[in-house]
Computed example of a mutant assay.
Amino acid sequence: MLRRHFLLASLATMALPARATGTGKPGARNSITDVGGLSIGQAQDTRARTGVTVILPDQSAVCAVDVRGGGPGTRETDALNAWNLVHRVDAVTLSGGSVYGLAAADGVASWLGAQGRGFAMTKRPDIPPSPIVPSAILYDLNDGGDKNWGTEPPYRKLGLEAVQHTSQDVALGTVGAGFGATAGALKGGIGTASFITHDGLTVGAIVACNSLGSVVVPGTKRFWAAPFEIGKEFGGLGPAASLVGEEDWGLAKFNPAPRANTTLACIAVDADLDADEMKRIAMMAQDGLSRAIRPVHSPFDGDTVFALSTAQKTLPSAARSVLVARLGALAADVLARAVARGVYAATLPTGMSSKTWAMLPS
């Protein structure tokens, strides 16, 4: 008992980190590209109703990944484990197309290799480098598009097109990897958001929302992410006042199927963090999906979050863990906002049978 009281007294007198003070705000674009050293490429096949989104750092970047869904489809994610050789990536690819979509990284890797970018133990002109392009896919094969592609799925071509046309401007909604996505019973899509802290650090997120779960409160058109909205970036309706039953999933998909859903995201920060620190941020960022989608991380989703650092800003060696905690918490908020922005901006391709947010009753 005396030992217990001693421990409690010691904990009570420990100096806790000071809370962050001041007010931050979204970046100029409210986009992941507000993080310096980063651009985004997107391409879609409107006939097949599918697409690809590429996150391209200016130079190889430290990256980590966290997978929470029960049915993921990924490429080169094991390479990102901190105990393995390569801790940096040359690009990250998000794609529709289920397993076919993993070929999008082939197009990205071929372009990067032609530019001389990639991992090489020894640089020689006669040996191409090996670009590191971790990837994840979502399932959009049942969205009504023409998927009769035989032995020529479009994803390698789409990956090449996307990486060749990157930009600081990021289109929202029915584009890229989100072209054929559905978020519960609503049209899903690509969303992005950012936040710059009072002390000048930037956190950004991009997401392709194709979730089993619903992004709106049952019986309303108010987003689960509404408490984190800044301004009127996804309608400005505010949080719902209604109570929700524990098993009322609202506009979740009625007939889930394995690997038929999945939300894919990439977090970016400009702080100079290592692989272990970025892993923690990826893990914390997953809570942003929990704040924006209900239910999430189900056996039928393949939810995957990448997190990369462009290392534009050097952090002090002291109190790094506190900074990681701050950035991880912000990453979750930014990702929740990005999910809602993507669904809010989504439109229906001709003939697609989902609803959009705008179709819901007020």
Rank of each mutant, 00 (worst) to 15 (best):
Q42A: 06
G113M: 13
V203L: 12
N81H: 13
V86H: 02
M352F: 10
G96N: 13
H198F: 01
S242G: 13
T197F: 08
T220N: 14
Q115H: 13
P26S: 01
S95C: 08
A226K: 11
V54G: 07
I293C: 05
C63I: 10
F254C: 03
D303Y: 13
K232M: 02
K221Y: 03
P125G: 14
K355F: 11
A9C: 09
A120Y: 00
W249D: 14
E152S: 12
G245P: 06
L158Q: 02
G70A: 10
F234T: 04
G51V: 03
D58P: 04
A205F: 08
S321T: 15
D274S: 04
S130D: 10
N210W: 12
I127R: 14
R337E: 05
T93E: 10
D78A: 13
D276N: 15
I230K: 08
V89D: 06
L16W: 07
M284W: 08
F300Q: 12
I137G: 05
V175H: 03
A252L: 08
F306P: 06
D58Q: 10
G176N: 04
F6Q: 15
S317A: 15
F223K: 06
L94R: 06
V133G: 11
L308C: 02
A331Q: 03
P295Y: 10
G180S: 05
A205N: 13
G101D: 05
D272H: 00
V244R: 13
I40P: 01
G204M: 05
C266I: 09
N84L: 15
T21K: 03
P134F: 13
A329M: 06
G107Q: 05
S214Y: 08
C209P: 03
V339L: 02
L348W: 09
P153E: 01
T220M: 14
G159L: 05
G144W: 00
I40V: 14
R337V: 09
E161M: 11
E76D: 11
A109P: 06
S242H: 07
R124L: 15
R222C: 07
I137D: 04
L11A: 12
P361K: 13
P227R: 10
A114Y: 01
A225Q: 02
N30V: 00
S211C: 15
E277V: 07
A225R: 03
G173F: 12
A120D: 01
V207A: 14
W83C: 14
L2N: 09
Q168S: 11
L56I: 01
V339M: 03
Q168T: 07
Q115F: 08
E247V: 08
A271D: 00
H297N: 14
A240H: 14
L348N: 11
A20P: 01
W111N: 09
D301A: 12
V296R: 06
A104F: 09
P72Y: 08
V203H: 08
P125W: 12
P72F: 07
A345F: 01
P26T: 03
Y100L: 15
L56N: 00
W149S: 03
A265Q: 00
P153W: 00
D301T: 11
